[in-house]
């Protein structure tokens, strides 16, 4: 079973929390979808550092793995990780909120290296990702396609159309990761439109499914390093996460799905994130 060493875990944790700080720096300029960005950040950090076969210097390499952020509003997390990986200069992040910025509130593939497909409207990523997976097989390439969904997004019918399609085609080079933070814009997902049980639904559509703690780097790595979980089946990783993870006053509150932080409160928020990081580091035994 693939395992992270404590040193590797420490590095991933530090990178993820550095990204949280950078996101807060971006939000000096404008409001943003911090809740989903912080809930998905640990997973996206593991993906780009440990799982995806990719090359920031050659972002269109034909046999690269693809990552599509179907829940496109979480893109602050993706931007921060892509910058950390060297897809573009970190300075680009801080153009957030400015006229014609390349780091828009939803990602655009024409603006920025590393964005595989533009998203924003929910329910679009899994159909597109599945076709990329089918195209890999047509072309005799062995890349995998990873699509991140939100649990609120799973109310969209097109998610299940695509889930049915991937099950039907036995597309075992497709991986869906559901960032299950339990909250959406207007409240708890169970109250707005209950998409649970996500695991059983994907299983019923012919997927191999595993549930993990989406903030446990070891679990994230183990599950993603072993895909496909079953031959001839697409993989779904249901990641249980905390909305706005790392910012204690906002954690688990739907009001922080989208947040406008007063500029003079940014430094305070960054300090809170730093404290959270230190607390997490205490749990990593080296």
């Amino acid at each position: 079973m693939p395992e992270l060493t404590p040193e590797e875990t420490k590095i991933l944790l530090e990178k993820s929390y550095k990204c949280r700080q950078n996101i807060l720096q971006m939000m000096r300029n404008a409001e943003g979808h911090i809740g989903g960005a912080f809930s998905s950040l640990d997973i996206i950090t593991v993906l780009y550092n440990k799982i995806l076969r990719h090359d920031p210097k050659n972002p269109k390499w034909p046999n690269r793995d693809r990552f599509i952020l179907s829940a496109g509003h979480k893109c602050l997390a993706l931007y921060a990780v892509l910058a950390e990986q060297g897809y573009f200069e970190e300075d680009v992040l801080y153009t957030y909120g400015s006229f014609k910025t390349k780091v828009a509130m939803h990602p655009e593939e024409k603006l920025l290296a590393g964005i595989e497909f533009p998203t924003g409207s929910l329910g679009h990523g899994l159909p597109v990702g599945h076709a990329m997976a089918l195209a890999a097989k047509l072309d005799g390439l062995d890349y995998k396609v990873y699509v991140m969904l939100g649990d609120g997004e799973c109310a969209e019918g097109s998610v299940w159309e695509a889930a049915m399609s991937a099950g039907h085609y036995a597309s075992d080079n497709l991986v869906a990761i559901v960032d299950l933070n339990g909250l959406q814009v207007n409240g708890a997902t169970t109250e707005i439109m209950d998409s649970s049980p996500i695991e059983k639904k994907f299983k019923a559509f012919g997927w191999a499914v595993e549930s993990i703690d989406g903030h446990d780097f070891g679990q994230i790595y183990r599950s993603l390093a072993e895909v496909p979980l079953k031959k001839q089946k697409p993989t779904c990783i249901v990641a249980n996460t905390t909305k706005c993870k790392g910012l204690d006053f906002a954690e688990g509150k739907f009001q922080y799905h989208h947040w406008h932080c007063e500029p003079d409160k940014i430094d305070e928020a960054i300090n809170i994130v730093k404290s959270a990081q230190n607390k997490e580091l205490e749990n990593v035994r080296i």
Partner: peptide, 19 residues
């Protein structure tokens, strides 16, 4: 892709961006 045009159109886009 069956009677599921939203998925089919998204899949068409995914194929096209794959060349």
């Amino acid at each position: 892709f069956g009677i599921a045009e939203q998925n089919a159109m998204g899949e068409a886009a995914g194929f096209a961006i794959s060349g």
